[in-house]
Design a protein around this nucleic acid. Structure first.
Lengths: 199, 199
DNA sequence: TGACTTCTTGAACGCCCTGTCAAGAAGTTG
DNA sequence: CAACTTCTTGACAGGGCGTTCAAGAAGTCA
C-alpha cells in the first residue's frame, strides 16, 4: 500500500535532529515554536502535523538523543581493556559527533537537562529519563563485571555500585560543563575516577 | 535615620525562603508569578516592589540557597576524621534541613537545576553558578589537603582533582535523584566513592 | 483527466504570562 | 492633627505563547 497525497517537503529525521540541537542548547521552556520554525525552515502547521505538540516533539528528541548515545556507549565499551574506553566516555560527555556536527560549547547531557527541567512534574519525561539512566547503569554494570573477572578492574566494590557512581560522575560532569569547562581540572578529576577503578 | 512609611506586611526573608522552595521544586520557567502570589500570600505589586522582577527574585533565591548550603558544608567539614563528614555531605544532597522543613521528594541541587535551565544563555545565572562551584571545590580542596597531610586520605591524586570529582558526584547524585532515588544503589555508589579516597 | 489524499502556508484565536500603575491603607514625624 | 512616606491591592496593558484551521498546492491512483 503505497502512500498517496502530497509528499512531505522536508526530511523528518533531519528536522528532528536539528530540533534536538535547539532543545539541547536552550532547554524546553526557552525554546519556542517560533524559534523552531525559524531554525528548521518548516512552518508551524507542518511541525504540528508531523510531530504533534511541543511536548511530544521534545520528548521524541530526547528519545532520539538517548538512542544515539546508547549506540555509541555500547560500541565504545565493546573493547578490551575497558578503562581507556571508560575514559573516552567520561572525557566526551554526550559525544554525538555523528549526529551533532560542529558543536560549540558543551551543552551537557540532554537527559540530564530534562531531569532538571521537567522531572518530576512531567510523568512521561520522568519515564524517559529513568529508563535512560537504567540502561546506562545496566550497560556499564555488564562491562565492569567482565573487566573485574578479567582482573582489570578492582573488585573491592560491586560492579553495580561502580556503574552507579560512574552515572553520577558523567551526569555531574555534563552539568557542570555547561557553566564553563576547565579542561585541565576536568581531566584530572576523570583520571582520578579511572585510577580508582584500577585493580 | 529611622525608616518611615507603612511597614511591610510580610517577612521578607521568610517569603524569599518560601519562594526558594517553589522555585526549587518546579524550576524557573514553570513557576509563574501567579504561583508565587498564591503560595506566598503576597500580592504581585508587593513582590515586584520588594524583590524586583522574576529573574532577580529567582537569582536571589539561588544565592540564598547557596549561602545556606555553604554554611552547612563548612560546618560539616570542620571535623576529624574527614571521610565520615564527606559521606554525610554526599548522603544528603542539598541538605538544608534548617531552611527547608518537611521536604518530600529530593529536588536536586538548586544550583545544578539552574545550570541546566538558565546556563549558559543567562550571564548572571552563569556567574552565580560558576562562583558556587568554585567555592565548593575550594572548600573541599582545603579539607582534602589537610586530610591527606593527616594520612587519612590517599595522596595518589591531588586534592584539587579529588575535590573536582566530588563536585561531579554530588551534582550527578542530586540530579539523578530527582528522577527517583534508589537509596540502596545510591548508598553503595557513595561508599564506593568514599572508599576510593581512603589512604 | 478527475477524484482523492496529504502536506503547506500563514493568519487568527485564546490563553496566560510578566510587569505596571493609580488609588487607598497604614504607618512615622513634627 | 497634618504632612509625608512606604506598602498594598487588584485591575490592566501588552506581548508572546502554543495551538488550530481553512484554503491552496502537490502529489498518487484509476
Amino acid at each position: 500500500m503505497a502512500r498517496t497525497g502530497r509528499p512531505r517537503g522536508f526530511d523528518k529525521d533531519q528536522t528532528l535532529t536539528r530540533a534536538l540541537e535547539l532543545f539541547w542548547s536552550r532547554g524546553y521552556g526557552a525554546t519556542s515554536i517560533q524559534d523552531l520554525v525559524d531554525a528548521l525552515a518548516v512552518e508551524r502547521g507542518s511541525l504540528y502535523g508531523t510531530f504533534g505538540d511541543k511536548r511530544r516533539f521534545y520528548l521524541d528528541a530526547v528519545r532520539l538523543y538517548w538512542e544515539v548515545y546508547e549506540r555509541h556507549l555500547i560500541a565504545a565499551l565493546d573493547t578490551t581493556p575497558l578503562l581507556p574506553a571508560l575514559r573516552e566516555i567520561l572525557t566526551h560527555p554526550a559525544r554525538l559527533d555523528e549526529l551533532i556536527s560542529d558543536m560549540g560549547v558543551p551543552q551537557g547531557c540532554l537527559v540530564g537537562n530534562t531531569t532538571a527541567e521537567l522531572v518530576p512534574h512531567d510523568s512521561e519525561a520522568t519515564e524517559v529519563v529513568t529508563r535512560s539512566y537504567r540502561r546506562f547503569t545496566d550497560i556499564l554494570t555488564d562491562a565492569l563485571r567482565r573487566a573485574q573477572a578479567a582482573g582489570e578492574v578492582t573488585d573491592t566494590a560491586r560492579p553495580e555500585a561502580q556503574a552507579q557512581l560512574l552515572l553520577y560522575v558523567v551526569q555531574g560532569l555534563s552539568l557542570v560543563s555547561r557553566a564553563g569547562l576547565d579542561r585541565t581540572a576536568a581531566l584530572a578529576a576523570i583520571d582520578t575516577a579511572i585510577d580508582a577503578l584500577r585493580a
